[in-house]
Design a protein around this nucleic acid. Structure first.
Lengths: 130, 130
DNA sequence: TCTTGACCTTCCAACTATTGGAAGGATTAC
DNA sequence: GTAATCCTTCCAATAGTTGGAAGGTCAAGA
């Protein structure tokens, strides 16, 4: 299977597949006589894994760990769970931060007339020191 | 005022101030005889504005627009409000996306024993196609 | 067989925003 | 005078993805 076919099968862009190989996320693909990368069903499986993990917001660093756990038959599920829960914590922190920002902005916008006049509580807030 | 003092006064790193100048966020600072950048209170005010807007998650592109509105005495507050509400919308979309991910992960983690055995619903989910 | 189009290769760069370092000049304090 | 601290510019790295350029390969049609 060529890289283009692997890309279609996995949903991971061909360019991205090469990139993942270059940073060691996936092993170096074997090559045909002419130098084309060749992929097996198992490789596609791995690419799907990576895609799913990315979709769920894991960093490439974490995905490296997850892949190594996935390949390790004597892994402990507690390790996977810990990694996942740490990521959940990060997500929750980020959500909270964004919500806090959102609330501030909504509040500011509520006090802005939003008409043709220049007076604007939003800009005024921005000029407050610190 | 030197760049270091402006940095302290505004809370914006000296390195970042130079960067903001280089990308045209703030005008080119005047220079002392020896080539040091010099800043006025007004410049510090601008830097504070940028910092506050960044803290509220606006992109540098938006901040450019906000600064130009801020400087424009005949601005319409509706323009500021529109920019703000568009940003709020982006934040809400992002929050929703993160929450969806979070919920998926929490759900997966709930079904994972998290013990010494290798069986793990989280990893199993990752290997599902598409 | 020749050509065309679709594929593949590598390398380099852009995006966002910030931070870091290196090499060298200016200023300040002792 | 010299050491410490500031300033200067330039280049690079971070994370992840996407884009293009220049060139080689393959399969199909004339």
């Amino acid at each position: 299977m060529n890289i283009g076919q692997a890309a279609k099968a996995s949903g991971v862009n061909a360019k991205l597949i090469r990139h993942y190989e270059s940073i060691g996320i996936i092993p170096k693909a074997s090559r045909s006589e002419s130098g084309y990368r060749t992929y097996s069903e198992s490789d596609v499986h791995t690419l799907c894994f990576v895609k799913r993990a990315r979709t769920l917001g894991f960093s490439m660093k974490d995905i490296k760990k997850l892949l190594s756990l996935w390949r390790n038959r004597s892994r402990k599920s507690s390790d996977v769970k810990a990694l996942t829960l740490a990521h959940v914590k990060e997500l929750e922190d980020k959500i909270q931060a964004l919500q806090s920002i959102r609330n501030t902005l909504v509040d500011l916008a509520l006090h802005c007339h939003g008409d043709d006049r220049p007076t604007c509580p939003i800009l005024e807030d921005f000029t407050k020191k610190k």
